[in-house]
Design a protein around this nucleic acid. Sequence first.
DNA 1: CCCTACCGAGACGCAACCGTTCCGTCTCGT
DNA 2: ACGAGACGGAACGGTTGCGTCTCGGTAGGG
Lengths: 184, 184
Amino acid sequence: MQDDVTDAITTAFFEELASAGYGKLSVDAIARRAGVGKAAIYRRWPSKQAMTVALVSGVAVTSISTPDTGSLRGDIRRFLADAHTALQHPLARTIVPDLLAEATRNTELAETLQATIRNPRRASAARLLQHAIARGELPEATDIELGLDFLAGPLYWRLAVIAMPTADTYVDRLTDKIIAALKA
Amino acid sequence: MQDDVTDAITTAFFEELASAGYGKLSVDAIARRAGVGKAAIYRRWPSKQAMTVALVSGVAVTSISTPDTGSLRGDIRRFLADAHTALQHPLARTIVPDLLAEATRNTELAETLQATIRNPRRASAARLLQHAIARGELPEATDIELGLDFLAGPLYWRLAVIAMPTADTYVDRLTDKIIAALKA
DNA sequence: CCCTACCGAGACGCAACCGTTCCGTCTCGT
DNA sequence: ACGAGACGGAACGGTTGCGTCTCGGTAGGG
């Protein structure tokens, strides 16, 4: 197996996934875009489904780090900025909602996304909140589960769902309001 | 055109859309599920795309009402409860993310969703906030755009994106935190 | 310098789908 | 009672997709 071929397939896979969506994703189109024979693809993965699961897990492992700036505001700011950067990428902005929608009807894909993206991110965000509780910045009784919805929801809504542009100060203003919500 | 046939097609369309997703939606499958000839479908809409646009706009018109309970807390509570109920429906929970994902690459569908769902809902929520400002419950300088992200984001995240169940008290606790965020 | 394993290209069989057309039946309004 | 037209069902030609397979070419290790 030549690595450059694998790379070309991987790149083409995500471009094709973004432009066609998971439902209409076609192996022929991926091969065409990658400048590769279909056999090169089937030599690596047994099916379209397996290919998707493998490539998505592969790319997802990249994004696991818990901000630790020493303050709740700093940590949240960093957490949001990371997410903002990730969802800024045009491919990600198209692919992420698509995979999440598909996950509601494809169990294996759902488990993959959960294990490789959602759980690590949720754990990371939960750690962030627990640090703040340990520092006394948030009360002991803070509702972590609900807090996580505030850390992720508004930004995801704005960037991925309604896809409206964000002003430079957006993440800062968002941070202030999330902190207020967490403390309520 | 017989109304009961149109109804059967409409029902089958949404069931099929939920189970297959927009990308794999097939006219044959809709006809089969509706117990209807394909001609009955093509007699009503010229293409799958047109059919989707028409049926989605049709169902979306139903959901336009601005809560007006007299208090910010009551209005938000009502707004969230409405959304919660709507996204509780198993068909909606599957279809909505799917259509939103598709909208990133299908301009006509995006415009339809924007005009028939997003704009009315945003306008309704903005009115809610302006009433609160008029009553003095929120400061004049309230950032409405950002506030709208808090009204919609966390609940959508919880119900449609990560699809976790919500406790009975969820909407109440959510309301408290959103109010705190709005006032920050 | 050759052997092996991978390569790009693309044909193949099979299945699904689109949009159209036809059939014979059934339901209306008049 | 009748005629227009919508009905379910089925088949059509053309296209696309999957996964397999066969070519001839090419890169590199021994």
